[in-house]
Simulated assay, not measured.
Amino acid sequence: MGVFSCSAEITSTIPAANAFEAIVNANNLISEVLLPVLKSAEVVQDITSGEGNRNCTVKHKVEALDNENFTYCYSITAVDTLGITLEKITYEVKITASPEGGSVCKNASKYFAQNDADITEERIMSVKKKAIELFQAIEAYLVANPHD
């Protein structure tokens, strides 16, 4: 099994507590915020999204949640994405307050490929780009709706 790791850091004008709450409760924003980015979604127990003609269903599992320190770790399992089969993807999110009153979101991701599947940096960067788009969509929604 191959493992590929990457990280990202995103600064935001949104206060840390608000950014953390929005990320942890992103399912509540699917219809208004994330659907344009995901193309389609259905929240039951799984999240289903489509990329072009290819659909994939994922199962989301919370590994750790610390509301006081704004840390959130979750895994996505049963993944068929990036053109390869992954055992799971694990995300660790840590949000801190920035001196300007906004926040800094640090995200570390680990991709666990099944068997000897090749995980290229190019493929991971496309997923990383999508994650940044999702964060930016949440941020834009919070800026436009500060009392939600």
Rank of each mutant, 00 (worst) to 15 (best):
C6E: 10
S7V: 09
I10H: 04
P15Q: 01
P15N: 00
A16W: 00
A16E: 02
N18V: 15
N18D: 10
E21M: 07
I23D: 01
I23R: 00
V24P: 10
A26K: 07
N27A: 08
L29H: 04
I30W: 04
V33A: 03
V37E: 03
L38F: 06
V43T: 11
Q45K: 10
Q45G: 15
E51H: 07
N53L: 14
N55V: 15
C56S: 14
K59V: 15
K61F: 13
E63I: 15
T71I: 06
T71L: 02
T71E: 01
Y72K: 02
Y74G: 04
T77L: 06
A78P: 12
T81N: 12
T81H: 09
I84P: 10
T85P: 06
K88R: 10
K88N: 09
T90N: 01
E92H: 12
K94E: 09
I95E: 00
A97Q: 00
E100V: 05
G101L: 04
G102H: 00
V104D: 00
C105D: 03
K110N: 14
Y111P: 07
N115T: 08
D116F: 09
A117G: 09
D118C: 10
I119G: 06
E122V: 13
E122G: 05
E122W: 01
M125S: 14
S126V: 12
K128E: 07
A131W: 11
I132D: 05
L134R: 03
F135Q: 03
I138L: 05
E139V: 12
A140S: 13
Y141A: 07
Y141I: 03
L142N: 01
L142T: 08
A144H: 03
